Computed example of a mutant assay.
Amino acid sequence: MYIEQIKKFKPELFLYFIVPFCFLALMAWNYVASMDMDTNEVIHQSISMLGVNGTFLIMVGPLAIGLFIVLIWTKFIQRIPITALTTSRPKIDWKRVFLSFFLWGTITATMIYISYLTTPENFIWNLKLDKFLIFLIIAIIFIPMQTSFEEYLFRAHMMQGIGLATNSRLIPLLVTSFLFGIMHAANPEVDKVGWVIMIYYIGTGLFLGIITLMDEGLELALGFHAANNLISALLVTADWTAFQTHSIFKDVSEPSAGFEIFTPIFIVFPILFFIFSKIYGWKNWQAKLFGKLTN
């Protein structure tokens, strides 16, 4: 089992809380610092000095480095193999990663295309091929590292540590989902749309945590998260988002708490639960999500 398997390595529980504490403290400091400034204005100032790609690298670069910190900490400090951090299977199932990536990438691209067809006045053509190609290379390298860091920190390192400490599945699921959402509190989207967007962030964290527990591994969450950020960053940007990129389109509409927030959480994600459960034969939902750990 995904959490229980760690017991055989006889882990020191306090080692599970050092990296998350440092990261969350840094996020809290960033949020407090951002309260006295216009985050979106800071991003625009950075773009004027460093360019879009330079600003993007500054934002995702530290998170990409964070991936190596989590992996090195796990392997060399905790003495736990990366495979055990990732999955309960004998080896990482890359087919699961790519299936999840292409499934959610296709859905994301389709939803953006439908939005463009139904409200073309909300989009302008933003493609500058030379800049886009450079960004494409940067995005393909750094976005999967950024999203993998968040998955390995929240759905792997923290979920396993909290699970072992509480002998519970539900507690780490709820705690990591909440913290994953709160991590985005300093994003300019929060100022623009309002705190209702936390429904999307926390709901997405809950979705990723559920598929991790049900599938007994991180692979599906890794693929989903990478597709979510990468495809969105390549296809559409806006002047009020955290990631402002050399994308194909720019969304010039005024953001609102509606379709973009509630459709994924209450319609699309339940459909994905059904698809994944049929593909991988998920059973015993109650035990896997609400049960105690087995010995």
Rank of each mutant, 00 (worst) to 15 (best):
V70C: 13
N40F: 01
K75R: 15
I69F: 02
K91D: 10
P81A: 08
W104I: 15
I43G: 02
I80N: 01
F102Y: 08
I65M: 11
G54M: 09
I58E: 07
I82D: 00
R89A: 14
P81D: 05
G61I: 15
E41S: 03
A64L: 14
D93W: 03
W73E: 05
W73H: 05
I82L: 02
D93K: 07
G105C: 12
V42Y: 02
V60N: 12
V52C: 08
L103F: 06
S88P: 04
S46R: 02
K75N: 14
P90G: 13
Y116S: 08
L50E: 00
M59N: 08
K75Q: 15
S46G: 07
G66R: 01
D93A: 13
W94G: 14
T87H: 00
V70R: 10
F98W: 09
A84E: 02
T86I: 07
I72D: 09
T106F: 03
L63K: 11
D93S: 10
I82K: 00
F98I: 12
I77Q: 10
R96T: 12
I65G: 05
I65R: 06
I58M: 14
F56D: 08
I47W: 01
M49I: 11
P81G: 08
T108L: 08
L99C: 12
T108Q: 04
F56A: 11
I92W: 00
K75E: 15
W94H: 13
L63D: 10
